[in-house]
Amino acid sequence: MWRPLSGVVLTAALLTSCGGGDGANGSDDASTERGGKGGSPVSVENCDGEKVAFEAPPSKIVTSNAAGLEILLRLGVGSKVIGTGFPPAKGALPDDLADQAARVPVLGRTIIPKEKLLGSGADAYIETFRPARGAHVGPRPQEFRAAGIQVVQLRSTACAAGQTGPREDLSAVTDDIERLGTLTGASSRAREIVVGMKKTLDTVGERVDSVPEEKRPTYFVFDFDAGTKELTAVCGKQVANAVITLAGARNVFRDCDADYKKTGWEDVVDKNPDWIQLAVRNRGSGAADEKAFDEAESFLKSFPATRGLTAVKKDRLLRIRSERTSTPGVANAEAVEQIARTLYPDKFEGVR
């Protein structure tokens, strides 16, 4: 199921695990690379092939939310981040990354106000989700240019709507990690992270790839925070669809030609998924997360339309935070393994 990774050399020295080995150490791991190149020009491509060029790696970066911030921290370039929106909640990151994230100024608890973003002094803005067409959220392109800020998009999520067909692997996510590595002069660290993710995915693939498509269990992501009356379905173009597919399951909404869409419970009842992910956003503590998971589970078990679903009756409910499957990062590979181990426990006997 895994597709070739761009620019990755599979050497033993790079085979780090996806867990603790991918945490940044608090230092700027890119310093040796930059030392050899000085202020060499760098460029990356955004959605629609738009090229974004810098005369030197940007040194003042603002991230739109925790996804971009976490990738930069894992790359070891946290000292370059001067602000973020949608900051990670307490407990969302490993301790070493959380300590670094706590030092990053929060420019907005949600979307960064336009005035703060334009006045931040940033030379690069990492955008995780592109505003919907026609929705003027935040600065316009000409305002970014006037402020000297260039926008770099995480293509795995910002470009999802323009993708052809469903997303079935994490190549777009690993490409984003490598692109930010190129942008910040941390290419070597990016390759280490990507190879660690690949190692995890290969371990899963060796155990589930042989399961015929028709025998793979069906799977529904219940986005509890998006509402219980009008549901938000995770479609084929979303990163979560790749996570589900690589784990050996079938997203019941994989055929809808979008990243998300509004739907109703009648559609879910008609599809009757074998497994349901209770997807809740980080609440700031393990206890608060568990409370939210309990509330989502209680709803499914008490709501007349859902209490008869196969997944609910058989208690096949996975407690996995939304961010681990729907936003790009190392956690995507970890979620693949978590889901696969839950769905196919016999195939992971003896595997640590």
Rank of each mutant, 00 (worst) to 15 (best):
N65R: 11
D29C: 15
V268D: 00
G108S: 08
T110M: 07
R283V: 11
P304V: 04
R74M: 03
A287G: 09
L278W: 07
A13K: 06
G284C: 05
V243D: 02
R109K: 13
A13E: 10
G78Y: 02
T182L: 05
I149R: 04
T128M: 07
D175E: 08
T342K: 13
S210G: 14
L107D: 07
I193C: 07
C18F: 15
E295A: 14
S187R: 15
P139H: 08
E178A: 11
A279H: 06
S120E: 01
K80E: 02
A279V: 06
S302M: 15
R281K: 00
R167N: 06
E192W: 01
T310F: 06
L231F: 14
W265Q: 08
V173S: 11
L318T: 05
G91P: 05
Q277W: 05
A258F: 14
G286F: 00
C47M: 01
D270R: 14
S59Q: 13
I112A: 01
N282E: 04
D223H: 07
A53E: 05
V62L: 07
D346L: 10
R216Q: 02
S302Q: 15
T327E: 07
G350Y: 05
G181L: 08
D202A: 13
T218M: 13
P41I: 04
V351K: 15
G26A: 11
F144Y: 12
T200K: 05
L343M: 01
R191N: 03
T174A: 12
E337N: 04
A102V: 15
D176M: 08
S171A: 07
K60S: 04
D95P: 02
D176A: 12
A249G: 02
A340H: 08
E143I: 06
D257H: 09
Q100M: 14
N25M: 06
R167T: 12
A335R: 10
G308L: 00
E266L: 12
G165C: 08
V252W: 12
Q142Y: 01
S27A: 07
V194A: 08
A287H: 09
D169W: 15
E178F: 07
K51E: 02
E70G: 02
